[in-house]
Write a protein that binds this DNA or RNA. Sequence first.
DNA 1: ATCTCTTACATTGCATACAATCGTAAGAGT
DNA 2: ACTCTTACGATTGTATGCAATGTAAGAGAT
Lengths: 233, 233
Amino acid sequence: MTPTTPLEASGARTATAQVHEAIKQRILDGAYRPLEFVREAAVARELEVSRTPVREALRELVSEGWLEAIPHQGARVAEWTEKDAREVFELRLVLEPMAVGLACRHIDADTLAHLDDLASRMEALTESPLDGAGHSELASLNHEFHRLLIQASDNQRLAQILESVVRTSIIRRNFASYDRSALKRSMQHHREMLIAIGAGNAAWAENVMRAHLLAARVLHVTVDTSTATSSPP
Amino acid sequence: MTPTTPLEASGARTATAQVHEAIKQRILDGAYRPLEFVREAAVARELEVSRTPVREALRELVSEGWLEAIPHQGARVAEWTEKDAREVFELRLVLEPMAVGLACRHIDADTLAHLDDLASRMEALTESPLDGAGHSELASLNHEFHRLLIQASDNQRLAQILESVVRTSIIRRNFASYDRSALKRSMQHHREMLIAIGAGNAAWAENVMRAHLLAARVLHVTVDTSTATSSPP
DNA sequence: ATCTCTTACATTGCATACAATCGTAAGAGT
DNA sequence: ACTCTTACGATTGTATGCAATGTAAGAGAT
């Protein structure tokens, strides 16, 4: 029915990995709505593979939190509630500062230079007014900045947890709602974090990260600011 | 060859779930050694199912961190290194205090009473010298105590992350190496945490948890105490 | 009219057969 | 003796057919 990219040029080699990517993309695109069931047979038909790789891809997506499985009934797109947003934010507010704190002790000059470059490119983008593509580019650079910082923590588990936690929420987040001053402040946070890390000052870097995240939250959801957790004075 | 419980009375209903449990148990028992490959065909033969549910169980175990997958080569038991121990401890040291802090705001009387009961039973156990069974019982109660506390945080993601992070490390941890004073201190920490939670004092509860974890670590691994992270004064 | 039981259908769960891929060891050539 | 090639065997990856299970619609009874 829907001619929606039947597997074609996907970097992945196994059919399971391709189906995995395809379904994830459809969720991100909104082609599959929350609470909608993703049927094995239907996906298999549309992507022109058998049900086996579809089954395996669905199980992976379930364990990654994209879908929820109901025994003998199938897998459906996980719903995104206010509570989910709160949970993810609580976790980021603790884990990302932890990551930059650890990064202070492990980071190498190359990574720091790469981060510096990313920060510069983001700053350059914010010099002029942004269109849709600009917002998209900025979001992409920002995501890469955070990802690289997290990798520098030298804690694989932490990196994996944050990746999966952030990824599921990144869909609904962009810079469209940022006004000029909020954007500049965000860029300054990045810059300040790099300086703190370069100075090996973990506490400084951690607190800038907390400020960075809290400032961003104000723009996205209504917050009870008294519920902040584990924040040192 | 090895008559190792061919599926029989396992609470789970689907074959996949049963295989999942069986393999996990064998890893815990040490029947599968680190870096040893778990072959689909072999497991299928021994548990008297087809390869299909075995494949699905293996994939789940991979995503839970018990096994690591190598494309076209199979899944093998994940190795446990010093670095793994360090990573898990760093995470616990941040996430478990976060959990008790959150629990301070959400906990109900029933849960608190249940925790109180668990603490009492552990204290009773430590009154008399412990044999092997005693240590096992104590470890079980302790695990349940922490698990319940984490659930009370009312953050499903946090609970799931901690469960999977702690579970993989719990294998090599028990109370055999605890001397009398260390045991009593551990029990006092539990008690103090409950009092802090009952008083709604999150900072107090969080810091007792950090002390609890740090005290436990001294008994298990050699530590560079300067690497503690995100610890408020 | 409402409730319960029956029955048919859609969908997942499992088994088996076949194809693709990788590691390895034997063998030819240098 | 060493290296490169190549064919084989073992193992995973994929397809398809059948069984088990849950859902929902409809007939019958209260």
